[in-house]
C-alpha cells in the first residue's frame, strides 16, 4: 500500500496551503462530496465551500476549502482554492456572527430594489455557505 500514494497540492492565492502524499482525500464539489483514491480517473471539477479530509496512514487532517477547482490525475491531485483553513484555525465566534449577518441579509431581501437583488442574494448565500462550512467543522472538532 505504501507505494500507492497520491501527491496532493493545495494552493491558495497567498500561500501553498498543503503539500503532502496522502492515501485518500475527500472534499465537496458543486455536485456533492467526492472521495479520491489512488488511480482515480482524470477529472476536473469545481469546488464549493465545504469540509475536506485527507488521510495518510493513521493521520487524518481536516480543513475547510472555499471555492476553486480541483484537477485530479491518476497519482496527483491539485486543488486551487480561494481560501483554505485548518480546523483549528477557524474562529468560531466570527463564523457564528457571519452566519447571523448573512441570514439577516437574506431575510431583508424584500427591501432591496430589483436591480441589486440578485447580486446581494448571491453574495449573502456565498457567505452563509462559508460560515456554515466553518461552523460544521469547528463543531465537530469541539465535540471530539
Amino acid at each position: 500500500m505504501a507505494t500507492n500514494k497520491i501527491e496532493l497540492h493545495i494552493v491558495t492565492p497567498d500561500r501553498e496551503f498543503f503539500t503532502a502524499e496522502v492515501d485518500a482525500l475527500s472534499f465537496k464539489t458543486t455536485e456533492g462530496f467526492i472521495g479520491v483514491l489512488y488511480d482515480h480517473i482524470p477529472l476536473i471539477t469545481t469546488l464549493t465551500s465545504g469540509k475536506a479530509v485527507f488521510k495518510n496512514d493513521k493521520d487524518t487532517f481536516e480543513a475547510v476549502l472555499h471555492n476553486g477547482f480541483a484537477e485530479i490525475g491518476e497519482e496527483k491531485v491539485t486543488i486551487l482554492t480561494d481560501a483554505a483553513e485548518w480546523a483549528d484555525e477557524i474562529d468560531m465566534d466570527r463564523a457564528l456572527s457571519a452566519r447571523q449577518r448573512a441570514e439577516k441579509k437574506l431575510e431583508e431581501m424584500t427591501h432591496h430594489d430589483e436591480k441589486h437583488k440578485e447580486e446581494v442574494v448571491i453574495q449573502a448565500q456565498a457567505s452563509l455557505l462559508r460560515a456554515l462550512a466553518r461552523i460544521e467543522i469547528a463543531q465537530a472538532r469541539q465535540d471530539k
Binding site: 464539489t29 458543486t30 455536485e31 480517473i41 482524470p42 477529472l43 476536473i44 471539477t45 469545481t46 491518476e74
Partner: peptide, 8 residues
C-alpha cells in the same frame, strides 16, 4: 493521452 472528465 488520457481523456479528462469534467464535472459538471
Amino acid at each position: 493521452e488520457s481523456g479528462i472528465n469534467y464535472e459538471p
